[in-house]
Design a protein around this nucleic acid. Structure first.
Lengths: 219, 219
DNA sequence: CGGGCATGATACTCCCCGGTAGGTGCAGCA
DNA sequence: TGCTGCACCTACCGGGGAGTATCATGCCCG
């Protein structure tokens, strides 16, 4: 599944080459996300990515300057989609318990429907903290990390609301958010999308997550 | 922290060289676990591991046949310790809710106190499903996967007990176990052991996990 | 005291893979 | 029909790192 097709503005300090067309980049990202998901980042070669497109390295390097840039762009897209889904819920006017339930549901569903992208995003961050990265890549990485922190804050704030309103048990939001996101993100470890099981199966999984989290927070 | 010092019998089809002493192997494993935790498996070089020992590659290859074998042995040790801690609880005679609480607590504490080993074990499994592995390594990998499945079954069985005894809400154990282990294992992503914070800090985190899980299961 | 084995260092080899240089074909256009 | 530029390919380089072959240094034991 491609990241938002409707993203025509050239990315800010993305590693994509300026002149390259968006659809071309998207194809690279989709192939790369699938490859990273299967073999992991370092074990994936640029030729692997190209093979998935029925192409050669030339095509990949026509759109992206480096493997790390592809990786970072996958992160950015994945995080952006997650934020786009969840932020409106978090900032809405519903009761905290209902907001958390809806956020958990949205998070779980997006993890499954956009699996390769989300898996790379969820599992891959630390891979770059030690490596050789350029100035621009470091900036992009910091940007993604900030997005992730901001995303976690969405949950923290709703937890705080709920605690104040006595809708949740007494808890420390910063600490309580960890098992919640853990229960959710662990999906990227055990879940494997299979074509034959449709929305119903995903919904069942998402509802189990909702149930577990909401009960874990009740006073 | 070294894996069990009292494991003198040469491991079954481990990648350790037969003649090598146990303490010698342990030192390699400790250094490798730390290196893998910091940089990830593929980004870690054998020289990195040797450097941590103040030694050279020669020493590493004296004890282990390959990098993959080191990796697999870390898995085996980590899983074995986890099983040794949790299995007696799971098979005890306490009430299901108390057993789950104790299992969660033990799991969380071991994750933190034996952090590098557990982190490698929890986060690294998929890395090998695609790579070049020998017959023996494949067998070792399968063994570790079986250990992991057996470990998950410990939780599944207690969930089943609790469901039958009406101590837990109605749930499907196979499905409900995922968010539980997810909340726990996510520790390996965000937790960073710092020397200055001691048992108290770890206990607080573990109790938050226990609280969250136990409430998530209540009828 | 001397041989043998455990232990480890040194100095390679080899190949995989990220990245680059330069070309080719084709579409659109005047 | 020739020009231009995008999209992509082929062929190559270079470095890094896994693994090996061989040698040095003990330490134990007779």
């Amino acid at each position: 599944m491609a990241p938002s097709r409707a993203a025509p503005p050239p990315p800010p300090e993305s590693g994509a080459r300026p002149a390259a067309r968006v659809e071309g980049r998207d194809a690279i990202l989709v192939a790369a996300a699938a490859a990273f998901t299967e073999r992991g980042y370092t074990a994936t070669t640029i030729d692997d990515i190209a093979d998935r497109l029925g192409a050669t390295k030339g095509r990949v390097y026509h759109y992206y300057r480096s493997k790390a840039d592809i990786f970072l762009d996958i992160h950015r897209y994945a995080m952006q989609r997650m934020i786009d889904m969840v932020k409106p819920i978090a900032e809405g006017r519903a009761a905290p318990a209902e907001k958390i339930a809806a956020m958990v549901r949205a998070h779980a569903v997006l993890l499954m429907t956009s699996f390769p992208f989300q898996r790379v995003s969820v599992q891959g961050l630390e891979r770059h903290l030690a490596g050789r990265v350029t100035e621009r890549q470091r900036a992009a990485l910091d940007g993604v990390i900030r997005m992730r922190d901001a995303y976690e804050d969405l949950f923290v704030r709703v937890l705080e609301e709920g605690r104040k309103a006595r809708a949740f048990r007494s808890l420390e939001p910063r600490r309580a958010v960890k098992p919640i996101l853990g229960a959710l993100n662990w999906l990227t470890v055990w879940y494997r999308p299979r074509p034959e099981d449709g929305d119903a199966s995903r919904t069942a999984i998402a509802e189990e997550m909702v149930e577990f989290v909401v009960r874990g927070l009740r006073p």
